[in-house]
Each structure stands twice: as structure tokens, then as C-alpha cells.
Amino acid sequence: MSETATSASPWRPWRFLSRRLNAIGLTGKGLVILAPTLWLVVFFLVPLVIVGQISLSLMAYGQPPYEPLLTFGADGTVQLTLHLSNFLFLLSDSLYINAYLSSLRVAFVSTVIALLIGYPMAYYIARAPEKYRHLLLMLVILPFWTSFLLRVYAWIGFLRGNGVINNFLMWTGLIDAPITMLQTDFAVYVGIVYTYLPFMILPLYTSLVKLDGTLLEASADLGAKPLRTFLSVTLPLSMPGIIAGSMLVFIPAIGEYVIPALLGGPDTLMIGRVLWDEFFSNRDWPVASAVAVAMLIVVVVPIMLMQRAQDAVVERR
């Protein structure tokens, strides 16, 4: 007990400071979460408020290209004008709803494909001898060392008419004329699944590697066939990984702009492109902001559903 007394005296300035901080409501715990909180406020909340504020304004051609929400009258009055017309406009034209739905569809299909490909890969890595696991994980992460843009661009070389895949198929004699793969929805799925696959594999791996091998043995001892063991032991226990991985693929895929722009066909309609048109072609920042805010709402609902599913899984254990 004497230790506290001796150690306290040289740290008097620190104690003084901590007392002052406590007095204004900041504890040690508060200080620790202060940095991430500040980060979120500055880089997430403030931009979001700015976008939200622009979405309630009206377009004006100038610098900045929208009308101010607050106007100050000569007699000292302050007037706040909020326009909901941008959001109503989104409902008036089926383009926006179609684009949202088609983005959700593309994101959903991509997530399912990424799960079907990623699960066996993650399972294999988690079951591999321990000395190889790090190497295999490294191989999953390795593509990130090259620019995302270059990797998507490389797919053009693979998929195009006289690209690697068509040339190979024609060389083997399987096809006579090149198959059109580039500028199709197929190419968009390839691009999205390829790009986001690591985000699916890594959380799956973390939940599969924690899986207790004795449970599988117990299941086998009780007479379950491998498929039965997988369905009633492995799969439920890896559910948190499936949900986390699916969210990491689904969410960025909805707003994807680059991949459909480079690989997609002209009839690939996604919300990212609609946003580009509003912002650049129409120069209508308020409508563009309204599209972004509406997209946030569209994304938040599935996230909350998945979050709830995840919580349910955790609780059941």
C-alpha cells in the first residue's frame, strides 16, 4: 500500500491534470475514446452534415453551385430555407428507384458469389498446417499491394475480344469466334467479386480458425456424416464470419462506380453512375446530395438487418 504513496508523489503534475480533466467530465476512458470520436466527427459527421445541408438547398450556377440555406436580411433577420423538393424529385422519376434496386441486386448477387467462392478458400486456409497459414493469408492480401485501378484495368486485358481468355479458348478449339464478355453485367460481377473477395475471406478465416476441432470429432463420434457435421456444427459456428464478410462486400458494392464504369456495359445502371451524372453532367449538387443521402438510408436498412442477425447469433451461443 505504501507503493501508491511513493509512486504518487513524483506524478503530482499528472494527478493535478487528471483531476482538472475529471472536473470537466473527462476521465481516462474518455480520453482514450476521444481520438476516434474526434476522427469520426471530423471525417464522417461533419461531411455528412455538409452533404445533408446541400441536399436541402437549391441549385444555382456559381461558386459554390447551390443557394445558401441561411440568408441574412438587411434588417438583421435571419431566414432559414429548407427545400425538400430534391427528395421528392427522386421519387418523381423511376430512374432513381430503378438505379437503387439494380445496385442492390448487383451487390447482393456479388456477395452470394463471393461467399460461395470465399468460404471453401477460408476453410482450406483455416485447416491448412499452421506453418502454411500465414503464407496463404499473405497470398489473399497480396493483390492489395497493386493499385485497385490497375487490377480492374487488367481484367479488360483478360476479358476483351482478343484478350487472354478468348485467345486461349480459341486456341484450344472450344470456340470458333470470340465471346463478348467485356461491357456486360458478367464482367461487372467478375470485377466486384474479384476485388472484394479478400474482405469475405478474412473474416471467414478468423471465425473458422477459432473453430474447436474436438467439436467436429464429437460430431463424427456421434455418427454424423461430414455433410451433416458441416451443416449443423461448422456452418452455424462460422455465422459471425459469414455476416461480417457479407457486409464488407455488400456495402461497398452498392455504391461501386469504378468497376461498372470500366468493365460494365452501357445498360449497367448503378447508383454510382447516376450520382456522377447529377454532380458532373447536371452540375446539380443539391440533387446529387439528395441521391447520396437517400443511398445512405437504402444502405443502412440492410446493415441493420444483418447487424440484428449477427446479434441474434451471438446471443444464441
Binding site: 423511376s94 430512374l95 445502371l269 452540375r283
Partner: peptide
């Protein structure tokens, strides 16, 4: 004009995507 540009962009989206 911005009004016509909006019509034009919308029209172009229909041409591009068929929607």
C-alpha cells in the same frame, strides 16, 4: 440552360441504358 441540361442528361441516360 441548367433546365435543358437536366432534360438532356436524362434523355442520354435513357439512350445509354434503355431506361
Amino acid at each position: 440552360t441548367p433546365q435543358f441540361d437536366r432534360l438532356l442528361t436524362r434523355s442520354w441516360t435513357r439512350i445509354r441504358t434503355g431506361r
